[in-house]
Design a protein around this nucleic acid. Structure first.
Lengths: 238, 238
DNA sequence: GGAATCTCTTGATCTAAATCAAATACCGTG
DNA sequence: CACGGTATTTGATTTAGATCAAGAGATTCC
């Protein structure tokens, strides 16, 4: 698990300079950080780390997409959140855990950097802005989760699915002709695991929306054609 | 809002020495911290701070109970979490927010200390262990919320209510003859807002459990008589 | 290129829990 | 202690969405 390989080529400083946790750092500092990193490419659907296991490393998603999931005793899977490109993940130490609290699986082919967890305290102490920016990310994720709890408690399935899709296109939308496409493969099943419903209901919903011209979808692909109308469905005021 | 008054009597150091964020500090440091604090008593059901408002202060619950809630555009209320005695709350700065992300309301008569938010960075920098312990709390809350998302997505109402009650008695249970009582007033409505259901369903559930001798309840009071059997209801394995 | 495997769609049925509707119990207070 | 406001209980009805069931396309793999 969480195997780490040394890079074949030297990683370039420019990879990190624009990412919030590193934005205040000098080229020398970034060099330092990169020299301690391992990089690895993952195929789609590969586990990066698993819930409950010793949190030996922390990660940065350089490219691709990662899904954070939890699995119930009954074997049902729930998708807790998606990590967009450029963010840290598996940062158990930052929250006082010593095992990973959830499982991370690539949702598309991905490039991941990682460092041994014992460097965490170093990074926090040594690098200006690293902690602050990291906790900002944590804060955002917490807010998102909070919103999900509220949604699950108060909204109907249709609204929840609309919210989930909008969240995805905001985070990962890729402009295509006449719409915005979620730029990694996503199944009806996935969407149901994000919204606490079944693949059947998601399928029906998407079919209905497709008839109304709101979205267009194919196998593992969803394109939103009329984002604004989807927003209306979520019941947002204003 | 969030009015703060100077204490009438000098606060005693012993108030903080046992609380995790302060446990590593010397008496002198704790004195320093207390001297900058304002303390205030709140009646039950009073708003301590409100979602969206400027996060001017951060808080420590010295005694009593605080509920963190969010209110939907439609006016529905969702209880995100309960703050147990001894914990920090309203720590927006720690997560990079500058407004409070939710509303805090006392669930019982409470005593609250507070400090101006601009001291936050000082505290983190100056006091050993303060940041670490605080983020541990954040981590725990995050884990809890995560669990709630999983519950809401996969469990039936009966299980969710059982979980919510068990969580409450774990955090705040007070031993009474033959059982454990939730030691602040809690209505069926409150429980429904914690589990995303209706007060009617909660009432029916509690009635049924009462018939089976699992719980005993009165107006705003719930006592768990057979905790273990409630645990079984949640569907926990093992 | 055909078999096996995923993924998606759609109809029919069922059910948990919401909603609707009243009645009842409880509590503080003037 | 009677009154008004809050909580709670319980029955009847409705419904959103799960479950059951079956097929049809895609994709991958021999």
């Amino acid at each position: 698990m969480t195997a780490a390989r040394k890079p074949y080529v030297r990683l370039d400083e420019s990879l990190l300079t624009d990412l919030p946790p590193f934005s205040k750092l000098s080229a020398r500092e970034i060099r330092e950080i990169l020299d301690q990193a391992s990089s690895r490419r993952y195929d789609e659907g590969v586990t990066v780390f698993e819930e409950g296991f010793d949190a030996g490393r922390f990660f940065l998603l350089l490219d691709g997409y990662v899904r954070v999931v939890r699995i119930t005793p009954e074997g049902e899977q729930v998708i807790a959140l998606h990590i967009p490109t450029g963010q840290l993940f598996g940062i158990a130490k930052a929250l006082g855990h010593d095992t990973y609290p959830a499982t991370a699986i690539t949702a598309a082919e991905s490039i991941v950097l990682s460092w041994p967890m014992h460097l965490w305290d170093d990074f926090v102490a040594r690098y200006d802005g690293f902690a602050t920016e990291t906790y900002k990310t944590v804060g955002t994720r917490m807010k998102d989760m909070n919103n999900r709890v509220v949604e699950m408690a108060t909204q109907q399935v249709e609204q929840r699915i609309a919210c989930a899709i909008l969240r995805l296109i905001n985070q990962t939308g890729r402009k295509v002709d006449g719409g915005i496409e979620i730029d990694f493969p996503i199944t009806r099943q996935d969407l149901s695991e994000m919204t606490g419903t079944t693949l059947h209901t998601v399928s029906r919903m998407l079919s209905a929306w497709e008839k109304q011209g709101l979205v267009s979808s194919a196998r593992k692909r969803i394109t939103v054609l009329k984002a604004h109308e989807l927003v209306l469905l979520t019941g947002a005021r204003g």
